[in-house]
Nucleic acid binder design. Structure first.
Lengths: 153, 153
DNA sequence: CTTGAAAAGGCGGGGTC
DNA sequence: GACCCCGCCTTTTCAAG
């Protein structure tokens, strides 16, 4: 697809805020009818601009009130070691995000837990079992000041 | 609401993966009819277990391929300073997440950008304009190895 | 983009166990 | 209290112009 026009961007902005908006509602907001909105959304989905639709759940009510940021550096940095690390991390369901970084540490991990004790067990039983970890430093979120899945587009 | 039962949890697991699943489809997966699924979802929404429904967009295709993690420490830590910082950060649309931390640094910020030059401008013109920042250290994501909005429930 | 029409799903009442 | 059945209405979906 060529470039997105202004209407496409407006649709994306609406849907990343609230994907339950109907094509009709969006059409009214943009002074159009439902059909062109429908077609544009389908196009945006097919071209991959929209990756997926998800429900965002409440961490606290679902017993995951603890968020930890864990910084990890490897001892050795061969390609094989990095791939192995990636696969081992992906197997850990508690890890919500894992980024390979340029900077002081090799990886940032964001981890959700029900308690600090669980985090202790997680590090003791799972993370530290991964070979080749050189440095492991954890920080805990005191307060989620701001968090969104929206892109600034 | 009391505790969630197994059916509620299964519904939440499905919806946080794909919120476009219809009540009918979910009903088939759980060997029920659409009505109880519908009622349960409404209850989960009303009680706040489901916070919102959103479309997740593609960073790269939407010209935000650069993700930075920025660690900030304040010089002074009075209540007023922290609140001021919070409000100033919330005004910056490029910031996707901001966490007040316990650990070496006071805040973690996740920031999306179209380029390193933009990030440079962002730090120069916006972040560094915020009073009271003592330490500011940026790391860049080389590769998003794993990232999900799903909770492990 | 518009019109229009068929199919599907959201929604809600009433009933069963 | 949780589930099932059924009908209405809205929305989705997709033609053709």
């Amino acid at each position: 697809m060529e470039k997105l026009d202004d209407t496409d961007l407006k649709i994306l902005r609406i849907l990343q805020k609230n994907s339950k908006k109907t094509t009709k509602e969006i059409a009214e907001m943009l002074n159009l009818t439902a059909s062109p909105i429908y077609e544009r959304i389908k196009r945006l989905e097919n071209k991959g601009y929209i990756k997926k639709y998800v429900a965002l759940l409440d961490k606290v009510q679902l017993n995951n009130p603890i968020t930890a940021i864990c910084m990890v550096s490897l001892r050795y940095h061969n390609e094989g070691f990095i791939d192995t690390f990636e696969n081992q991390i992906k197997a850990l369901k508690e890890v919500q995000e894992c980024y390979h970084m340029a900077g002081k540490v090799d990886f940032f991990l964001k981890i959700n837990m029900d308690s600090l004790e669980s985090y202790h067990e997680f590090v003791r039983l799972k993370l530290s079992k991964i070979e080749n970890i050189g440095v492991l430093e954890s920080s805990f979120v005191l307060k989620e000041m701001y968090s969104t899945t929206e892109l600034y587009i």
